[in-house]
Amino acid sequence: MSNPESFRELCRNELHSGPTSGLLSGYVQANLLILPQSAAESFEDLCFRNPVACPLLCKTNDSPYRLENHDRYIKNGHFDIRRDFPKYNIYHGGELIEQKNNCVDEWAEGHVGFLIGCSFSFEYALAQAGLAPKNVVQGSNVSMFVTTKYLDTSGIFHRCPYVVSMRPYKVNDIEQVRQITRLFKKTHGEPIDWGFDGAQRLGIRDLKQPEYGDPIDIAENEIPVFWACGVTPQLAVATVGQSIDGAVVGHTPGHMLVLDTTQVS
């Protein structure tokens, strides 16, 4: 794959179904949530009330082939939100029932697809500064944890926990890591906490057992660093799923849409 368009075509043809961390470095990646119209307004308000955990980039424009401000995000070629992610999670009643390479059968008239900023978008900038995340170096998925921190309530969404991604760093590198990622405000920005005491504040019990993604070893001279994570909306759906009629679709954690842009603000 040489560019985002060709990568999306691979996904559309079900020739790539793996994680996207470290792929097509420098391009913005996006998380996904597709909701029935009845829940879409509450979710959009949830994003506005929680812009760090749920940084809304755009939503579909009455079609799975078009986005609001489409040319800003998809500049080249065909686009299909139902096929262009490597893998999808399918939910009913808040329960994850299936993982698929497309969600064509689940998409219905009136569904709204939301693209949420992803922290994979700043991993290239970290690598350029000599601070490549371990998950990129090792070719693995990032570790993601459910926390005891809650989103601000909106509509049907209440008591919905944050999910965080974790990347280990040396203590002396933390300030530079913060400065680099702070610039990526639409893809979660700087860390929300760090250190083993930070893990305790977030209610994370075992750093070796992430709820999503792969375990990442933390060396003796490193500490865990935590960013808000775009899997949070899917956990919100699981939390209030009985309030949503019909199918809900998200990306499989770590399996993102790669956009044509290299920067969002």
Score class of each variant (00 low, 15 high):
89 N>A: 15
90 I>L: 11
90 I>S: 02
91 Y>V: 09
91 Y>Q: 08
92 H>Q: 15
92 H>A: 15
93 G>A: 13
94 G>S: 07
94 G>I: 11
96 L>A: 03
96 L>T: 05
97 I>Y: 02
98 E>P: 07
99 Q>L: 03
99 Q>I: 05
103 C>L: 13
103 C>D: 07
105 D>A: 15
105 D>L: 13
106 E>W: 05
109 E>D: 14
109 E>R: 01
110 G>Q: 03
112 V>N: 03
113 G>V: 01
113 G>K: 00
114 F>A: 13
114 F>Y: 14
114 F>K: 06
115 L>G: 01
116 I>M: 12
116 I>F: 09
117 G>K: 08
117 G>Q: 02
117 G>Y: 04
118 C>R: 05
120 F>E: 11
121 S>M: 02
122 F>R: 04
123 E>F: 08
123 E>A: 11
124 Y>N: 15
124 Y>H: 14
127 A>D: 08
128 Q>D: 12
129 A>L: 12
129 A>V: 10
130 G>A: 07
132 A>I: 08
132 A>T: 01
132 A>L: 07
132 A>S: 08
132 A>Y: 07
133 P>N: 04
133 P>H: 03
136 V>K: 07
136 V>S: 06
138 Q>N: 11
139 G>L: 11
139 G>P: 01
140 S>Q: 11
141 N>D: 14
141 N>A: 14
143 S>Q: 03
143 S>C: 11
144 M>E: 05
147 T>A: 10
147 T>F: 01
148 T>S: 10
149 K>G: 10
149 K>I: 13
149 K>E: 12
150 Y>H: 11
